[in-house]
Design a protein around this nucleic acid. Structure first.
Lengths: 349, 349
DNA sequence: CTGAAAGCGCTTACAG
DNA sequence: CTGAAAGCGCTTACAG
C-alpha cells in the first residue's frame, strides 16, 4: 500500500493547471485573482483533500507562525488547575483568538535544563511568574518580543499588580478591629523551602525573586502604623498554593492552644484563605467571631461560597489580555502596573 | 541601525569553519562528532547568540514539530476555568512534557468557520468534546493521528468514561432512601438552548450529539427500577457549567413552594451540585435533611468543602494522560472506556 | 568523523 | 490577473 502522502500546493497547482502562486493567492490574497477562479480552486482543493497551505512551510517562509508561547514558571499541572493562572491564560487566549493567533503552553520548570526546541516556533513570548533560572531566557530567540507578567526583566515590557499597596490597604482594614494575635501566612517566601512556621533565623527571598515579598511589605507597613512590631507577628510559609499543601500548615495553626491561636490571619492568596475556612469550619471555629481572615486574588470560588472572603481582587484575566495585546503590538509594550480592589466579605467585615 | 537579524546555523558554520551538517549534528546527534568539537560548537553558539536550530525550518524539514494540538469544543475561556477540562489538559500536558512535546491550544468554537491555519503545524490532534460542526475535522491534515475524548468519531481512537453505568449507580444509591419529589438537572441536553425547566414538548439531543444523554439514560434506568415513571420526574436544563449560568435555574428550583420543591436533585456535574449547595445554604435549606443531591465529576472543590458532595468520580487527568499516550504512540490507539467510581459524601449519604 | 548538496512546502517580488 | 524562480533555515543520506 502506498503511504497516503499528503497532497501539496504544488500537486494541486499541477492538477488544476495553474501556477503555485495562484493557489497560494487563492488561500491568502483573495484580491489577487478572480472570485470565479478562486472559488474553483477552493472547491477542487477540498475535493482533493488539500486543507490549505502547510503551516510549517508557511511559517518558515514568512517568518511568522501566528503562535504565541506562554511560559509558566510553575508546572503546567499546577498552572492549569490554579484559578489565578487559569484566568490569566484565558485572558491571553481570548485576545489571541480574536486575532487568529494560537497559544502554545510551555513549562519553565519541566526540565530546568532547557526550553523545548519547539518553542522557537513562536512569534512572541509571555513569561508568567519568576523563572527558576534566567538561563532559560537566553534560550529564547532574542529578536522576538517578550512580555513579563508579575515580575521584572530588564529591557522588556511587564504587566504587574500593585501588591504592596493592596496588601497595605487590606491589612489596615483588618487592623481597624482590635486584634490580639495577628499572624501572616506567606506564599513561597523563604529562601529554603519551608512548609510551616518561619523561624527568626530563616532568610526570606528578595523582592526581585518573589512577588510575595511586596505583599509582606504591605502587611508590615500597616502593622507598624497600627503600633504593632512586625517582628512580633508570627509568620508561616506555604510552598505551593494548593489545598493539599496548605492543609498541614493550616492545621498546625488552627490546632494551637486557644491562647496561642491567631485571631487574625492575613493570607497571601485566596486558596490559602479558603483552606483556612474549610479547616476552621471542621473545628467548629466561628468566622469572623473566633477568627478573622483575609485573602488575595479575588478568585470566583471565594466569592460565591459562604462565608464570602474579604480579599484583594486582582483582575488576572485583564492582566492576560494586556500582556497578549502588548505581544501582538495592539498596545505599547511598556511597564504597566494594574490597580487592585479591596472586597470586603464576611471573613473580615 | 542594522536590524539584528537572527544568526542562523549557516552563519555559525561559516564562522567556525565547519559544515552545516556538523553544527546540526552538534545539536541533534551527539554521537556523530567528537565530544570536544561538540563542546566547542555549543560554547561558540551560545557566545554568538545562536540558541539552536530554528523550529520552523526544522519542522518543515523533518515533518515533525513535537507539538500536539488540543482542540476544545468549548471556548478556551470556559475550558481553562472549568475544573474538569483543566484536569484533562493537565494530564495531557504532563505526558507531553515527559516526552519533550508541547501543547497547542485550539478552540473549536472561536470562529466556527475554520481551524486557525497554524494548527497544521501539529504532529497530532486531541479533540475534546463534541464539535459543533464536523466540517472542522476536514480542515485537519488527514494523515496525522487524532484521538477523540468524550465522543466517538469514525476510524479514530477514542477515550471515554462509562457515563450510563455511573449515573445508574449513583441514582440507584440515591433512590434507596425514599424520595417524594426527585428531579434531574441536565447539562446542555436540549435541542434548543434552554436555561430552565424542560417542557414535555422539548426535543433532547441524541446520544451521538451529547455525552449527557447517556447520563440521563443511567438516571432513568434507576428510576424505572425503583418503580418511578421517568416521565413524571421534572427536569431542568443548564446551558453552561458555570456558577453564573447555573444560578438562575437553581434559584428557580429552590424557590418553588415547599410542596413542589424537589427533595432529591440528580445533577449532571459537580459545578451544578456545588451551586445548589451554595444557594440552598443561603436559603436555610438543610442538606441532606431537606434536600439531597448528587453530582458528577468528582472535582476537588466538591471534596474538600463541606458538605462533601456525593458524586461519580471520573479521572479526567488520567483520561488526558491516556489520550496523550495514544497520540504519541506510547499505547495502542484504540477505543477505551474508563470506569468511574462512586463517592458517597454528605449531600446524599 | 566531516562536507557538499538536495529538498522539505510554501510565499513573494517581479516580469509579463 | 498569472507564471517562473528564488529562497526561508534546516536535516539527511551519501561520498569521502
Amino acid at each position: 500500500m502506498i503511504p497516503p502522502r499528503r497532497i501539496t500546493l504544488k500537486d494541486l497547482a499541477r492538477e488544476l493547471g495553474v501556477s503555485t502562486a495562484t493557489i497560494s493567492n487563492a488561500f491568502n490574497r483573495p484580491d489577487q485573482l478572480s472570485p470565479k477562479l478562486r472559488e474553483h480552486i477552493l472547491t477542487e482543493a477540498r475535493r482533493l483533500g488539500y486543507s490549505g497551505p502547510d503551516a510549517r512551510a508557511r511559517s518558515l517562509r514568512t517568518g511568522r507562525s501566528r503562535i504565541i508561547a506562554v511560559m509558566l514558571a510553575e508546572s503546567l499541572t499546577y498552572s492549569l488547575n490554579d484559578a489565578v493562572s487559569s484566568e490569566l491564560l484565558s485572558g491571553i487566549a481570548e485576545v489571541l483568538d480574536t486575532r487568529g493567533h494560537t497559544l502554545l503552553l510551555l513549562s519553565g520548570r519541566q526540565n530546568a535544563a532547557s526550553v523545548p526546541g519547539a518553542s522557537s516556533i513562536a512569534d512572541g513570548f509571555i513569561i508568567y511568574g519568576l523563572m527558576p533560572s534566567l538561563k532559560l531566557f537566553s534560550d529564547l530567540p532574542p529578536e522576538r518580543p517578550l512580555v513579563a507578567v508579575d515580575f521584572d526583566i530588564e529591557d522588556h515590557a511587564t504587566v504587574h499588580v500593585d501588591n504592596e499597596p493592596g496588601c497595605y490597604a487590606i491589612a489596615r482594614h483588618a487592623l481597624r478591629t482590635p486584634t490580639r494575635r495577628p499572624a501572616v501566612i506567606n506564599l513561597r517566601l523563604t529562601e529554603q523551602p519551608c512548609n510551616g512556621r518561619i523561624g527568626d533565623d530563616q532568610a526570606l527571598l528578595s523582592a526581585e525573586r518573589t512577588i510575595t515579598r511586596a505583599r509582606l511589605a504591605g502587611f508590615q507597613r500597616a502593622f507598624v502604623e497600627a503600633g504593632i512590631d512586625p517582628a512580633e507577628v508570627p509568620m508561616w510559609n506555604i510552598e505551593e498554593n494548593t489545598f493539599k499543601v496548605c492543609t498541614p500548615v493550616i492545621e498546625e495553626i488552627l490546632d494551637l492552644p486557644d491562647a496561642e491561636r491567631p485571631d487574625l490571619l492575613l493570607c497571601m492568596s485566596d486558596r490559602i484563605a479558603l483552606t483556612v475556612v474549610t479547616l476552621a469550619e471542621q473545628r467548629g471555629l466561628r468566622i469572623p467571631e473566633d477568627l478573622r481572615l483575609t485573602g488575595f486574588d479575588g478568585i470566583a470560588e471565594g466569592q460565591y461560597r459562604a462565608p464570602r472572603l474579604t480579599t484583594i481582587r486582582q483582575d488576572s484575566t485583564e492582566k492576560g489580555r494586556i500582556a497578549a495585546r502588548m505581544i501582538l503590538g495592539m498596545e505599547p509594550a511598556e511597564s504597566r502596573v494594574m490597580t487592585t480592589e479591596m472586597m470586603i466579605g464576611d471573613t473580615c467585615p
